[in-house]
Nucleic acid binder design. Structure first.
Lengths: 147, 147
DNA sequence: ATCACTATGTTGTTAGTAACAACTATAATG
DNA sequence: CATTATAGTTGTTACTAACAACATAGTGAT
């Protein structure tokens, strides 16, 4: 199999995985109080700590304007907190409120236990292998984006 | 590592991969004459042969109403063809026009050669491994959806 | 010190994504 | 023939997301 053929198979396989995951995520997230993008913002803020708007946008591969609106909806629902940076009046630090954290934990547990059921018949060493490879692919893709 | 921990890591890794892929796909597809969803419809129609609307919707994990509109836009741009089934006046068979096929081939080649560059530093056997595992995960997820 | 430049966020606008419900028209069934 | 089921379309609503224009706040050079 040539590299091009390999690339084609991989592209196809990843695409299929993406569809299924997205479909499932919508299902699990939207019955709570937030949309998929909002949930992803919560996740990013939890995992990458307090962030400025532009930094959050970069992490999520979104435009700052889009991010601003996503954050705004979370603000109105009181899931995130805006703190003005005293050293720079333009900048804001975004972090989760306790209720934001609680909501994310609930959704996260749902999603993870679903993922766990999903892989219940896949041998652990196979999952570990997949993990490594998927990460390698992500890194390769990310490096490519930068250039 | 427990199954839950494994599930958590996997969920995170797949999510990252999805973001990067989506970001890139938008970039590569939207500079041509179609949107991401439209391109995916073209792809599905090429790969799964002529389809009815409902069948196309099922393949794409979309509602038939959403699919109807996606198809409609492709119809207006003359990339797909609607044929009424003589045996069932309600049903339509959807297929690509020559220009639809040509457009898809162009985009597809772009995407695949990008994917190929992406994996140029990843050893072939690693890609093959990832391929198998990603497919296994997709199947597991799909089975889970059905239930 | 001031004027130009840059960076941070927000708002206006536009287009694409996607579901649910209601509807029309056509089969299939009893 | 009436009832029910199926195939697609249309109305409506909400979310996703970018680009451009903007206000405001720091940064630097003269």
């Amino acid at each position: 199999m040539s590299r091009l053929e390999r690339a084609e198979e991989l592209y196809e396989a990843v695409n299929q995985l993406i569809r299924v995951h997205q479909f499932r995520d919508r299902d699990y997230i939207c019955c709570h109080d937030v949309s998929v993008a909002q949930c992803y913002a919560l996740e990013t803020l939890i995992k990458r700590g307090p962030l400025r708007l532009q930094a959050l946008a970069d992490e999520m591969y979104l435009d700052k304007s889009t991010t601003s609106r996503v954050v705004d909806s979370l603000l109105r629902k009181q899931y995130v907190l805006k703190l003005h940076d005293p050293d720079d009046q333009r900048a804001i630090q975004l972090s989760l409120t306790p209720s934001g954290e609680a909501l994310y934990q609930t959704i996260h547990q749902d999603l993870i236990s679903e993922e766990a059921s999903m892989i219940k018949d896949v041998p652990p060493e196979v999952v570990d292998g997949a993990l490594t490879l998927i990460r390698q692919l992500t890194i390769a893709a990310r490096n490519r984006l930068g250039s």
